[in-house]
Nucleic acid binder design. Structure first.
Lengths: 334, 334
DNA sequence: TTGTACGCGTTATCAC
DNA sequence: GTGATAACGCGTACAA
């Protein structure tokens, strides 16, 4: 099998403590000793056994990112950023998919096993503040997304209401008068969808624009297929709109397909705004105007807060908001 | 801190061995004892400490998936499948991004630390058979993708030449005569790109179709942006083609954008075929015809082979091929 | 069926 | 500066 500290120590004629000191870069080791030990390490091809180290230190060097689904482009992009970010600090990334299921979210929060991870970055969709408070274990935790966080937990978010207002104003200011919202109450009590709808409604109100329940287009599930079906349905039932604020880019992309099939021209007949600025929004035809959350800052902030907690920082939950842009593309050209 | 086996044992008035037996579902435990122990477990909220267990057993319950970039839709979809698949066997997923860098691929293969993972599923892009042979450690390994694998390593792939031929024939049979290939030698010696180009060329030859170096459109990098730039460039330099076989769907999507900007109509002027059948290929306008590898079988096969190795199976490397479909959509309608 | 005692590979606390 | 030795929490012969 692989060489151990003891093997190296025997070969170098020192104690394992000295080998350990060399391996871990401890300063006060006589150069000649260090050289002898290093030679033994090289000869045996010794590699530290991380599990043993971790049992001894109580840390694992692993950070989990719990998200609904890794194949969702927005989360995949986030995961890539998190992976890169934490890699710079020698942490490794464990991916936990919750599928937006209550049970999985609970399991993730409780930590199926102790000692597996040093910290958790978690984007909940189902659990509310009380449940998070109740189920969370003792591992450092940072929440992502738009749920109202429990007062004890760190949290990073984008101002969804402000962003939804910006998206809606953008459509209104290009002269559109009947703006719909796609993705209303996609899941009962879905915090993100509710906030975005709220921002949308408040923008309509501020401008005195037309509001009606018709214009709140529900989606049965998330994703492009569900969005396409929802928009087809809305058109068939006679809902009339010339602007569409979508829950996310996938919804926007599904909506644009539905509109094309219905013979509605984007942006001439309908202006469409998405959310997330996933890569594909650059490549729809026309390009999809979208709310772009500052993803790099989002992940960097989350990991910074997590690191502070992992380093033992106490205190009440902190709450940070990161910015967004409205990226204007062809789907709302006027 | 958290409760340990010893805490539970003390509370239940038994030895830690008995508690361990209960926790691990050992059969021969007296029901009354089991009940008492279970009560203690519940009362203390005992959760096994995975690191300690793993130090004792020598296994980690973790499988790593090493891929170039998690935000690439194809890999994200694969990762989702792997995560679900291994979750059914109580393994957890560690994501390793290699960014297609030689150093990172080596590091992944060598395993930066011993004992962290039980097995590795690895999609190399840079390393060749010799290097893999040389750098691989002792952890069970299954390779994904199109590199010619070293004889000792398990490997799952799609028949890229056959699939590229099918894609090319599809365009030829709809009456197109000048078929180009996008993504040629995107990286020098890139195995996947080479195989696909090879299949493309052999199909042209079989049909006696026009072949020329012009029609091999190179890409500087992978991805939709690079593809868009490459196609714009090809059009500007006067390359004439009425069909386009793309390295992957991202390339196809980028190509369609470039064609639209150049005023070329898909599929009337140019038929486009992609590769991977990522979700977005359903939502381009028109939909993107694509080679769909059987991703569920791919990941299931890979993990089955890996499990067999983790269970101690020896023997030479096995080699499995999974199927593909050609999914015909609007981009090649005739 | 259950208990005792040792080993897994490392780190950390003391002595020396 | 370096060496014994006790944790870390759990699995497992072996014994009872």
């Amino acid at each position: 099998m692989s060489a151990t500290l003891q093997d190296v120590a025997t070969l170098a004629g020192v104690s394992i403590k000295t080998v350990s000191n060399v391996v871990r870069g401890y300063q006060h080791v006589r150069p000649s000793t260090r050289a002898r030990v290093q030679a033994a390490i090289d000869e045996l091809g010794y590699v530290p056994h991380s599990i043993a180290r971790r049992l001894a230190t109580g840390t694992t060097g692993m950070v989990a990112f719990a998200l609904p689904a890794i194949e969702t482009p927005y989360f995949a992009e986030l995961a890539a950023l998190v992976s890169t970010e934490i890699g710079g600090f020698d942490y490794r990334l464990l991916i936990e998919q919750t599928s937006g299921s209550l049970d999985d979210e609970r399991a993730v929060l409780r930590g199926r096993e102790q000692g597996l991870i040093d910290g958790l970055i978690f984007q909940p969709t189902e659990l509310d503040a009380d449940a998070i408070e109740q189920f969370r274990g003792s591992t450092p935790l940072v929440l992502l997304g738009e749920i109202p966080p429990p007062p004890t937990v760190d949290h990073v978010m984008v101002d969804n209401i402000a962003a939804a207002r910006a998206a809606t104003f953008h459509l209104l200011h290009s002269g559109r008068t009947r703006i719909a919202f796609l993705g209303y109450a996609a899941a009962a009590g879905h915090a993100t969808a509710s906030l975005r709808a709220e921002g949308y409604l408040s923008a309509l109100e501020d401008c005195g624009a037309h509001r009606s329940d018709d214009l709140l287009i529900p989606m049965q599930r998330f994703g492009a297929f569900a969005a396409e079906a929802a928009v087809i349905d809305a058109i068939e039932t006679g809902v009339s709109f010339d602007g569409l604020v979508c829950f996310d880019d996938l919804a926007g992309i599904g909506a644009m397909k539905a509109l094309a099939r219905a013979g509605r021209v984007v942006p001439d007949d309908v202006g469409v705004v998405g959310w997330d600025d996933i890569l594909m929004s650059n490549f729809t035809n026309p390009g999809l105007t979208t709310v772009r959350p500052d993803k790099p800052t989002l992940t960097r902030t989350a990991f910074r807060m997590l690191r502070e907690r992992m380093d033992g920082a106490g205190g009440p939950g902190r709450h940070e908001t990161v910015g967004f842009d409205l990226v204007v593309r062809g789907s709302t050209a006027s």
